[in-house]
Amino acid sequence: MNNRSLIVSRVSRWVAPLIFVFGIYVALYGHLSPGGGFPGGVILSSAFILTLLARGRKATLERLPFGVAKKLDAVGALLFLCIALFGLVVTGVFFANFIHQYLPGEPLRLFSGGTIMPANIAIGLKVAASLFLVMFALSALRISTDEQDEPIRTLEDK
């Protein structure tokens, strides 16, 4: 995997941040336009996956260390759960939209819809981190077979 194309790696340097920003936009504006936490998270993680494919694992881990991604994964999920539990604490109903009652916001603006936007952010975090982890784990498995050069083929002879 050392013969990476220079063009691909240079271009990915430019494109990855743009994808990242677009992911944030899609996640934030999920309550107003097509999109939301899951697509936003997928786009966010695809920025890192692009880096992973174009420039290798080392360069990716400089951007997003494995441990941080693991933490973000759990934090995103817990954040989502906390939003649901806050609804329970504030209004007495699980998953109730507790912000919207007090801060209705202006419809069709970014700050509207109450808990929907925080929930989208939490989901975006969770999805981005876990998709990145999945791809990273798969790449780790794959590269370790490459390094051995000769995969374990002893069994196939039988």
Binding site: D73, A74, L81
Partner: peptide
């Protein structure tokens, strides 16, 4: 549902 789910994620942390 929520408590075991949350506990599972805390354990992952």
């Amino acid at each position: 549902v929520a408590v075991p789910l949350g506990a599972g994620f805390v354990m992952a942390l």
